[in-house]
Design a protein around this nucleic acid. Sequence first.
DNA 1: TATTTGTATATTGTTTTAGTTATATAAAGG
DNA 2: CCTTTATATAACTAAAACAATATACAAATA
Lengths: 109, 109
Amino acid sequence: MQKSPEVFAALADPTRLGLLGALAQGEKTVNELVAPFDMSQPAISRHLKILEAAGLITRRVDGTKRPCRLAPEGLAQIETWASMMRRAYAANYDRLDAVLADISKGEKE
Amino acid sequence: MQKSPEVFAALADPTRLGLLGALAQGEKTVNELVAPFDMSQPAISRHLKILEAAGLITRRVDGTKRPCRLAPEGLAQIETWASMMRRAYAANYDRLDAVLADISKGEKE
DNA sequence: TATTTGTATATTGTTTTAGTTATATAAAGG
DNA sequence: CCTTTATATAACTAAAACAATATACAAATA
C-alpha cells in the first residue's frame, strides 16, 4: 500500500536489537560483536548487513577489519514515525475520549 | 539473549503499518479497516491481534462490532527505546567522532 | 426463532527468515 | 610468498510468518 517498513523489520529480531545495544557503547568490529552472542560469525555478519541496509549502522574499513557504528539516520526514521503517530493520536483520540465518555454516560441511563 | 522485540515485530509488516495509519485518523471497526486493504478479513483480523498483543491497539465491544483504537503504550515503548539509543549515541559517538577525526588526520601522513 | 451481519478461529500451502557448516577473499604478518 | 586473521558469501535446512478458503459463533434484526 505504501512504504516498506525496512527499519522496523530490522529491529524485529532480538539478536539485532542486542547488536544495536552493543554498538550503543561505541564502535565495535565484527568479531567483537560476535563474542557475546552464542551464534556463528556468518549469522552475525548477515544481521549486520540487514542493519546497514536499514540505515541503522555504518561500517568503515580498517585493514581487514570492518568496525561498525550506530547510524542516527535509521533512528531518526523511527522517531519521525513515532512522533507522527503521537500527533495523530493527540489530534484524533484525546478529542474522541471526551466524545466516548459522553456516549457511555448517555448509555448508562 | 534478552527481551523480545514484540512491538518492533508488530511494525515489521506494511499491512500493519497501514492499519496503524488508518487508526491514526480515529477509531475504526474491523470491516472499516478491511475495506482499503485488498486482503481478506481473516488476514486483517490476525494482524489486529498482533497489534493488540504488542500494545499498539485496543479493542472494545460494541454489539457485534469490535472498534479498534490506537493505544499509546506501544508507541511509548518505541519512543523509550529510541531515546535511550539516541542518548547512548550522543554519549559514545559524538565524542568518538572527534577521536576518529584525529586518527584519520594522523593516518594521512 | 431464523437469518443476517460482524468478527474470530482452523486448516493448509507458500514464502521468508534465521541458523549452520563450508568456503572464498582480502589484508597483515612472518 | 605463505599463512593467518577478519570478514563475507554460498548452499542448505528448519522454523516462523503470511495469506487464502472454509467455517464457527455471537449479537442484531426480521
